[in-house]
Simulated assay, not measured.
Amino acid sequence: MSATIASPRWVRRIGGISRRSPTLAAGVFIILGFAAMALLAPWITPFDPELAQSRNVLAAPGGAHLMGTDGNGMDVFSRVIAGARWAFGIAIPAVLVGLLAGVPLGLYTGYRGGWFDEIAMRFFDALRVFPSIILALAVVAAAGPSLLNVVLVIGFLDSPVFARVVRAEVLALRHSTFVESAVSAGNPTWRILFVHILPNALQGAMAQTAVRAAWAVRISATLAFLGVGIQPPTPEWGAMIRQGAEYLVTGQWWVGVFPGIALILMVLGLNMLGDGLQDLLDPRRKAATR
């Protein structure tokens, strides 16, 4: 007599999602790995990521220093792990700022239309034409290279993406039967927007969050690499790559290569996560790719 053990419902659900979107599963796996690194960084880093050790400057990978040390004697392995905290600490707040600024604007412009909608869309078009990295570079350089300034600049530069996505959904929904019924019932505009339309228009914006988080990580690293973002000795991957670039010509490749690999993997994981979310949340996109 053989007995079958039923898998828990959440295990079957995860397995079903993985089969439907292997890209999503791979992205989740990568990002969960970096999230574990960020959360456990104080306990799994063998050395203080900001403590210089003058006796072990530019030590090659091996022994106590798995990824070697940098030009200040700091352990590269510890700094790569701690850098995951800064990557999430910039990406998550920047996406939230973009959502909080872009979603209400997209709701209002899509619902009201008229001259305000035209002005807002032309302003968004101007922002898209102007290179985002140049604009971020100028604003952060003028405001100062603090974490708050970097987050706010990246978030506000990203808000037009969320505004456009939500606006497109609102344009398709504003003449729906349930919206017209809400208007006929005498609901105020704010209630129609945030109670009736927003839950139905937010899906596209939520599918964009992981992709925009990848953009935020990439832009913050670029700013740090150019010297106007997060400053050393903070273990930020872009700043570490900048320092490592100075030593590539003399053969100390590990200083810049390991944080570069971490940056590539995290951006790849976020992009795969975002692509998988769009497949799951947008049936039309999934059908078009078949």
Rank of each mutant, 00 (worst) to 15 (best):
A205F: 07
A35M: 14
Q278R: 15
P259E: 05
G251T: 11
I90L: 12
P22S: 08
L24Y: 10
F88A: 04
R285V: 12
L263E: 06
A82P: 04
D125V: 11
G62N: 10
L263C: 09
P8L: 09
T45E: 10
P233I: 07
V28Y: 02
G274H: 06
F47A: 10
F34K: 02
A126Q: 07
M67H: 07
I134E: 01
N149T: 08
I44K: 11
I14L: 14
N187I: 01
G229F: 00
A60R: 14
N200S: 14
A26V: 15
P93R: 04
V95N: 01
V161K: 08
V153G: 00
G106F: 01
M1E: 11
A60I: 11
F162W: 02
L281A: 12
A182E: 04
G63Q: 11
W43L: 15
A142D: 01
G62D: 10
E236D: 11
R9K: 14
G260A: 08
E50D: 14
A60T: 12
P259V: 07
S146K: 06
L277D: 02
L198C: 09
L96P: 03
V153S: 01
E169I: 01
P131W: 07
K286D: 12
F156D: 00
V257K: 06
F130Y: 13
W253A: 12
V150M: 04
V195I: 13
G83I: 04
L273E: 05
L147F: 09
G204I: 08
L193R: 01
A94D: 05
R164F: 00
G27T: 08
G155S: 05
A163F: 05
R19G: 05
E180H: 09
S21L: 07
R212K: 14
N187Q: 13
F34M: 08
I264F: 15
D70L: 08
A216R: 00
Q231W: 05
W253R: 08
G27A: 09
F123Q: 04
A38N: 06
A91W: 03
V255E: 03
A224R: 03
S54K: 13
V161I: 14
P8D: 13
I44H: 10
L32P: 06
D48W: 05
W86T: 13
L171I: 07
S7E: 15
A172D: 11
M1R: 13
D279P: 01
T222D: 11
G16T: 13
P93C: 11
V97S: 05
L152H: 02
D75Y: 05
F156I: 15
L147N: 03
A142K: 02
V150S: 03
A142W: 04
W254D: 07
A64P: 09
A84W: 02
K286W: 06
P235E: 05
A163D: 02
Y108N: 02
T23I: 15
A35T: 13
G269D: 02
A214W: 02
V165F: 04
L51N: 11
W254H: 15
P188H: 09
G102T: 03
G89D: 08
A64Q: 14
L127W: 12
